[in-house]
Design a protein around this nucleic acid. Sequence first.
DNA 1: CGAATCATTGAGGAATTTCAAGTGGTGTGG
DNA 2: CCACACCACTTGAAATTCCTCAATGATTCG
Lengths: 228, 228
Amino acid sequence: MLMRTQATSTKQGNFRHPVAGIGKAATLSGSIEMMGASMPFARNVEVYGEDEPAEYVYKVISGAVRTYKLLGDGRRQIGNFYLPGDIFGLEAGEHHRFTAEAITDSTILVIKRSAVVSLARSDRELSHQLWQLTAQELEHVQTLLLLLGRKNAQERVAAFLLEMADRVPAGNAVELPMCRQDIADYLGLTIETVSRTLTQLEDAAAIALPTSRRVVLRDRAALNRLNG
Amino acid sequence: MLMRTQATSTKQGNFRHPVAGIGKAATLSGSIEMMGASMPFARNVEVYGEDEPAEYVYKVISGAVRTYKLLGDGRRQIGNFYLPGDIFGLEAGEHHRFTAEAITDSTILVIKRSAVVSLARSDRELSHQLWQLTAQELEHVQTLLLLLGRKNAQERVAAFLLEMADRVPAGNAVELPMCRQDIADYLGLTIETVSRTLTQLEDAAAIALPTSRRVVLRDRAALNRLNG
DNA sequence: CGAATCATTGAGGAATTTCAAGTGGTGTGG
DNA sequence: CCACACCACTTGAAATTCCTCAATGATTCG
């Protein structure tokens, strides 16, 4: 568990064109975006680190992001994957509690947290949305809890595939942006177990694997059954 | 995993004296309490069920509460334990996402959610506290994630003991309100593994077990080392 | 093509679970 | 006050799942 081939994360990414515009009925998924700047992040580059001050809120424009915590000896637990349209990095406190990294080359909208929070002071709707966003994050993590605490490898992988399929609009085929190690560290397994379980599911005709990164859900009922 | 000796949960508990008083600078840990009614819940009695409408917010006055999710076949994952002073059951959405049960005979303050939320509409401070409360819950669950996904039995039990010791003021001795099954379902283990691990820690002189429910932390440094 | 990265597969081992039995404390009723 | 039943907990032995170690494929990219 100590070796990890993934590139060392170095800070990077340069602002493009910051905009100061402020809408009237600000929403996090809407006009708030005008307050941010679009920034490119290369694959495996860190967006923010655990325990760093939470100065910004982020929104994935393209690409994908993972957030994780590390144990002293390098064991890693991924908390969530963020896909285009997802907001991440919003903290109620002062510091980030996870590290965030681009999984693939990504474009990420970067918004000053203070701008959002101060706008929320006068905008009841926005303020409510901030709470909702934290609550959504909570809901997701609570689902993961049950998975990590009580599900076996098959159930975990099935849940993962169904989750990804739900989050990407594209019908029954999913192009996974993350490698096996990421999936393993999300599901609390090893890459070998993830790989073996995927082939098991393929043998059972529940899925097809045209390439290692592309998964076709062939029998959702079977996967849902595994999902508990 | 299908057998569970715990008593069947039946609804129960009768309101005592509802109060309508409202403070000026309302806080969740302060004057909001005036808006609630103190209610007794017997051991193993359900406070609310998963997916029920979240009409109330709760605060433990005395006793202890567990919240959990079940899988179809009865596997259970406990999300949190609540001790005197803790608030639980606050949802940003309309429904509870866990079931809550009294672990021991408990007194619980029951507050109408609508009262809190409507007061929060005009009270910026309270509104912020609601967000903070959800964020605290998130923080706790995120810590559990790392535990369930990546820690071994010794590390899990050590983390649990340290957490409980931190949450009860009483120095190095902790009186556990919950049974081994609860601990197991919190840590994603079996009762046997929890029991064996506790005796291992006792043999290693990290803890003492005067009774099965009382734990004395004898070597916090050792436990912290295990905690990663 | 060769190197590097990522993924799959196999064999053996380790940690945890499962199954089973036994211990200890507590409360009830004779 | 003892006997019995009931729980919660502990302990042991066997089984199982998942992990570790190791080798082999596959894909990409200079």
